[in-house]
């Protein structure tokens, strides 16, 4: 049961990777990258979990907290993947107006 949860986050990562590698439309590639980002963040959440422990908010009478490190790491990664997505969308707007298509298999100006 324990390893099944880890396998699910890895599977999400692989689904994202499949989208990036196989699909031709640029928007689908960007969605694939976001899915990869979510998969990695899910992995970090899985790491921090301990059974019979409460969330890491300081209360008077609790003894067992889950790990507070990922709470600081995950928003930074979410913001980084969000910024990467914004940059890719801005680039794809300009790409669309120069090439008139979003199909990556047709955009092959640079050859060799």
């Amino acid at each position: 049961m324990g390893t099944l949860i880890y396998i699910s986050s890895f599977l999400l990562f692989l689904i994202g990777l499949y989208c990036v590698v196989v699909k031709n439309n640029l928007i689908k590639i960007i969605i694939g990258i976001k899915i990869m980002g979510y998969g990695v963040c899910l992995f970090y959440i899985m790491i921090s979990y301990k059974s019979n422990a409460i969330a890491p908010i300081v209360l008077k009478d609790a003894k067992n907290y889950t790990d507070p490190y990922p709470h600081a790491i995950i928003p930074a990664i979410m913001a980084a993947s969000f910024a990467a997505m914004i940059l890719m969308l801005a680039t794809s707007i300009r790409l669309y107006e120069k090439h008139k298509t979003l199909d990556m298999s047709k955009i092959k100006e640079l050859k060799g």
Binding site: L17, I33, M36, A80, S81, A84, H99, L110
Partner: peptide, 15 residues
């Protein structure tokens, strides 16, 4: 085109 290619591949590497 060069930039979008680098962005997609570089983001995969980062992940």
């Amino acid at each position: 085109e060069a930039s979008i290619r680098y962005q997609v591949i570089g983001t995969i590497g980062s992940f």
